[in-house]
């Protein structure tokens, strides 16, 4: 795993160096390597395909135009994610529509299984994503990176330019806020703490 990360780091650095000495076409390799990851992050914030696509394009163009400010020897992915997260947060501040509050989380309480499982799973994922992204930005960002994209607290600290301790605290509080939000919106009220009772949801997956 560590070896794999080191390999990616070196390959990224090689491509960046080539771009910085004039091989502009080489940037396409960077786009290939990161477009899906950045699209996912953008999608969590925007919750729609078109805005996520536009954000990803803007992020890659911004990164290209600022490539000379990237410090060789540091992790390119961390630098790129930092641009992405900041860009997404800017977008949220300026353009994000006010989503309707989470309203149909009662599907969590169902224990039925059937052909509609896929649809339900997508609905559940969509509701949770909406709930996460509607939290205050400092909490939604750490939750997205930790739970959705599998980053460690140390990596999140580097991306968000904070300490690991701060990330741990935000994860702790963010998760509590998310649980309260989902709990208060679930139809059953008492006994439907979704994030601590995954059994019901697990049946939908």
């Amino acid at each position: 795993m560590h070896y794999h990360a080191q390999t990616i780091l070196k390959e990224d650095e090689k491509i960046i160096q080539a771009v910085l000495i004039g091989n502009g076409e080489g940037y396409g390799d960077i786009v290939d390597r990161y477009q899906t990851k950045l699209y996912r992050v953008s999608y969590y914030y925007t919750q729609n395909i078109e805005d996520a696509r536009d954000l990803v394009q803007d992020i890659f163009i911004k990164a290209y135009n600022n490539l000379s400010s990237f410090k060789q020897g540091s992790a390119f992915s961390t630098w790129l994610y930092r641009i992405a997260v900041n860009h997404c947060l800017d977008w949220c501040r300026k353009k994000r529509p006010q989503y309707a509050e989470v309203s149909c989380l009662d599907i969590f309480s169902t224990e039925e299984e059937g052909p509609e499982d896929l649809y339900l799973r997508q609905e559940v994922a969509s509701e949770i994503q909406a709930a996460v992204v509607n939290l205050p930005a400092i909490y939604s960002t750490v939750l997205i990176l930790y739970y959705f994209e599998d980053f460690s607290p140390q990596e999140i600290a580097e991306i968000t330019n904070t300490s690991k301790r701060t990330v741990e605290t935000r994860l702790f509080r963010g998760r509590k806020m998310l649980r309260d939000k989902l709990h208060s919106k679930s139809s059953g009220g008492e006994g439907h703490d979704l994030l601590s009772k995954p059994g019901q949801l697990a049946q939908l997956r």
């Binding site: 502009g24 076409e25 940037y27 396409g28 786009v31 290939d32 477009q35 899906t36 699209y39 996912r40 999608y43 969590y44 395909i49 996520a52 696509r53 990803v56 394009q57 890659f60 163009i61 290209y64 135009n65 799973r121 997508q122 994922a125 949770i128 994503q129 996460v132 739970y147 959705f148 994209e149 599998d150 979704l194 994030l195 995954p198 949801l201 697990a202």
Partner: peptide, 22 residues
């Protein structure tokens, strides 16, 4: 419960637009 959720992927090529724009 919530890791690595399914999200709809775009049906168009992002890369082409980016490479045309830079």
């Amino acid at each position: 419960i919530i890791s690595n959720p399914d999200i709809p992927m775009p049906q168009f090529d992002i890369k082409v637009n980016i490479m045309d724009s830079i």
